[in-house]
Nucleic acid binder design. Structure first.
Lengths: 355, 355
DNA sequence: CTGAAAGCGCTTACAG
DNA sequence: CTGAAAGCGCTTACAG
């Protein structure tokens, strides 16, 4: 790739003159400029962004440490992050956090060496070790964590109104007359803890408790969720509604119900959380809470860029970590229906009309 | 972040000495080295990778222009690409191709400025314009295209054995006795064209032709696929099997069948192509062709790195574009079954035994 | 063993 | 209007 020096040689001028001409600054003879621009174009000159990074101390690059881009939630998030970065002309250096942790690769060292301007941490499956948290704190550039608050006390955070979301689901099920409610929860992550709390409290307000045998933990992958869902649904009696930690788990619950010959929603209502694209396309379509995942990612990118640009200014207001939670919306679809016993005790004709 | 210069000041030596000490080269007094390493550690020194990029002309960075990371196919591919780059310690600068094209952003300019070592082009929804193809050819670094051969004549390519894959599906359906076969195809992409050809030829060998009314184009998003699937399935008579361009389209076909009260697989067999994780978890589980998508991405990354390292050597063998197609495997699951009329005309008892 | 010099590609004052 | 000088952070010969 041609350099300014080469252009300078060709045009028989000095490098500073080329620099001025190409960066459109005044003090250059129009004819000289003309010639320089023409040569630059002809040889397809591209300024070297690495140099800008060195000189300005800004690379216009943000590292994104993402876990599981290969699942719908993660990839929706990435899409939003990319869009947010794109708006402000930042580029994205993408890392697979978990893979790197497994390998012992020190992502933070790498992104330190590459002088990225900031970091978006889309939390890992395996939470960072104490070591890693230490490293994170030693990374003296803005960090925004996304979705999980594992480190929200230290860093900026963008996530979802998990509590209100789950509350909406609980109320929806109560309104449908469900009293026998099962729960597939995930307490290894902060969102799971928050959602469980909201669910339990909202049900308790109506005097409903989830029996221990209908409450089971899931750890994230399909097989496990499927097994746990099957375990709940094989019991007698079984719940009339199954609240799932997220849409993923709900899909496993669908499969478990299908394999057990349980009809959704006639025999069993199922709810998710996220509103991934799949939620609308599966059948029956999934009742869930819309997190607007891409929007969360986009907001995270925007927040990070704000922090980066703030840090640029010397008036250094002490960087109080911000915490942003985006609102949610209950999306009622075909996977939830009146509780079976209600249907049985009520006139079927009445039911038809109201459903 | 501390620099070599600052370390040199602190240790009261010259910058070259610091450089030698830190890069572990001999000619340094052990005591001096000791002191330098200690200070470097204390101030958490990290070499500036941008400098290496400038000096060596290698940034150890690969740009990935990806379309639709937010869908399962794209994100599986990305996962594989990341893994492949990671193996050789390359990092990934990620771009959303379609978004950029829409904005008129010249990705190639940006990645030129950032001096990436190569480019993986995971093809866009909207194929690149002639302008873009021109730009691509002007990008004098290795390019590997993935999945779609829109530019395979110019660049290295990694994809899937689409023809044999679709042939396996066709044979599978023939073996199940299907003669009434519908098809949702996508001829806007090269994979779609190849698959159609294989399907048509294989069926023709058995004297079967897909009627025009059972053959409809889809363009990629759910709504459209759903509409087209519904159009085919609403006809009378309708096919006993529906071959879908890919798993995505198959999911839309499931939804259409469900909404029309058509039971899969009893009334209708459906096939996909890709074997996304969802294919195994949906119900009935989807009969499809396993493309091993992450493996394709990983191979693409490996090929690109080979090309990059070859280009490094001055013995410049003329760079003949390579084309690699990874093998596929038919995965038979619950979405395909004996054709209904066969079931009807054959002894049910016999059928039970043979299924 | 150590450091002055030149260079990577560029920008920014500052003389002329 | 133009270019010599210094600098960004580092490496590579090459004197001493």
């Amino acid at each position: 790739m041609i350099s300014m020096k080469q252009i300078a040689n060709i045009c028989d001028v000095s490098v500073p003159t080329v620099s001025k001409a190409l960066s459109n600054r005044p003090a250059v003879n129009p004819q000289t400029r003309q010639r320089i621009l023409q040569v630059a174009k002809q040889f397809n000159y591209r300024p070297n962004a690495l140099i800008h990074g060195i000189q300005r101390g800004r690379t216009m690059t943000v590292a994104v440490a993402c876990n599981r881009i290969d699942d719908p939630f993660g990839s929706q998030m990435m899409q939003g992050i990319l869009a947010g970065l794109h708006e402000s002309r930042y580029e994205c250096l993408l890392f697979n956090w978990d893979q790197s942790v497994r390998d012992g690769t020190r992502i933070l060292q790498i992104i330190g060496e590459r002088r990225v301007d900031g970091l978006i941490l889309f939390p890992p499956e395996e939470l960072p070790t104490a070591d890693y948290m230490e490293e994170l704190r030693a990374f003296h550039r803005p960090i925004v964590t996304v979705d999980q608050t594992f480190a929200a006390q230290d860093f900026d955070f963008v996530g979802t109104e998990d509590g209100p979301g789950m509350q909406a689901i609980a109320q929806h099920l109560l309104e449908l007359g469900h009293q026998q409610i099962g729960h597939l929860y995930n307490h290894t992550v902060s969102t799971g803890q928050t959602r469980t709390q909201a669910l339990v409290e909202t049900l308790a307000d109506s005097g409903i408790v989830i029996p221990r045998v209908w409450s089971r933990p899931v750890i994230g992958h399909f097989e496990d969720s499927y097994t746990q869902a099957s375990a709940i649904l094989s019991q007698n009696p079984r719940p009339t509604a199954l609240v799932c930690f997220n849409d993923h788990v709900a899909m496993a619950a669908y499969a478990a119900a299908y394999d057990l010959g349980i009809n959704v929603p006639r025999d069993l209502s199922i709810t998710g959380f996220a509103d991934l694209p799949e939620a609308a396309t599966m059948r029956p379509a999934l009742t869930t809470v819309n997190q607007n995942v891409p929007r969360v990612g986009q907001r995270a990118a925007q927040l990070l860029i704000e922090k980066i640009e703030q840090a640029q200014q010397p008036k250094s207001t002490p960087p109080e970590p911000q915490s942003i939670r985006l609102p949610v919306e209950l999306i009622v679809r075909g996977s939830t229906e009146q509780a079976p016993q209600i249907k049985n005790t009520t006139s079927p004709i009445l039911m038809k009309g109201s459903s």
